[in-house]
């Protein structure tokens, strides 16, 4: 199984050239008044949604750049252009 990802420098390439860097969770939270639980959630918890997910990838076998892109996890197709429209995935909903 494979799919295509678009490196901002090298263009569309086989996904085997890339390394997955996890979901885009937005900027690192301010450490002031940050509880250990919130920090743990930021580091370890993921949304794992069936649908469009904004993710970090590295072009490991190519130019080495880190970038974000959106992927539809139900069909493994890159949703091009959507990544620029969103800052990050929505925050996790707390129970």
């Amino acid at each position: 199984m494979s799919f295509t990802l678009t490196c901002p420098i090298c263009g569309p390439r086989n996904a085997y050239e890339f390394g997955y860097g996890g979901e885009d969770k937005g900027p690192r939270p301010d450490e002031k008044d940050l509880s250990p639980g919130d920090w743990c959630d930021y580091v370890h918890m993921n949304r794992c949604i069936a649908g469009e997910s904004k993710e970090w990838w590295i072009h490991r076998s190519g130019c080495g750049i880190w970038f974000t892109t959106s992927r539809d996890t139900t069909c493994n197709l890159e949703v091009r252009g959507k990544a620029e429209e969103k800052d990050a995935n929505p925050p996790l909903e707390k129970e």
Binding site: C10, R13, Y16, E17, H59, R60, S61, G62, C63, G64
Partner: peptide, 10 residues
């Protein structure tokens, strides 16, 4: 310049 796998080697 093209950077990528050639014979599976970066």
């Amino acid at each position: 310049l093209i950077q990528g796998p050639f014979s599976h080697v970066p």
